[in-house]
Every structure is written in structure tokens, then in C-alpha cells.
Amino acid sequence: MGNTINTLHDFMLRTESLTYIMIVVALCGFIFFWRFLSERDDDRDHLGADRTGEHHH
């Protein structure tokens, strides 16, 4: 893929290709980010809500 954009096709090819790559990278990155955010939440479920019956009396 060259650097020059001459046609609409060139433009679409470049921007869409880059966008699709970024979306895939972002989605994979979100998995790690979610793990980073949640790995210390021992007493909560995956949605961040309290697990019932464990700490409430």
C-alpha cells in the first residue's frame, strides 16, 4: 500500500483497513483491560454486583 491517495478507492482502502485492524486490537485489548480492572474484585461477580448470601446476614 503506497502513501499517495489518488482515488476514493485508495482513501477507503487505507482508512477502512486501518480501522478494522484497530477494532481487532481494541477488542483484544479490552479483555486484558477488563482483567486489570476486575482481578482484585474477589467478592463481586463479573458485572460488579455483590454475590448474594456471602456477606449479608
Binding site: 480501522t19 484497530m22 481494541a26 479490552f30 483491560f33
Partner: peptide, 26 residues
Amino acid sequence: LGFAKAASWVLAGYFIIKVIGIAQTN
């Protein structure tokens, strides 16, 4: 704590869609 976690998550998504916006308009 709950809202901070949610805000962090949404901000990450916001950052991504902003960068994608730059890519889309080149």
C-alpha cells in the same frame, strides 16, 4: 468504587472510538 470502574471502562471505549474517528477521516 463502582462508578470509577464503569467510568474507566467507558473512557477506554471513548478513547478507542475517538482514535477510530481520526482513522476514518484520515
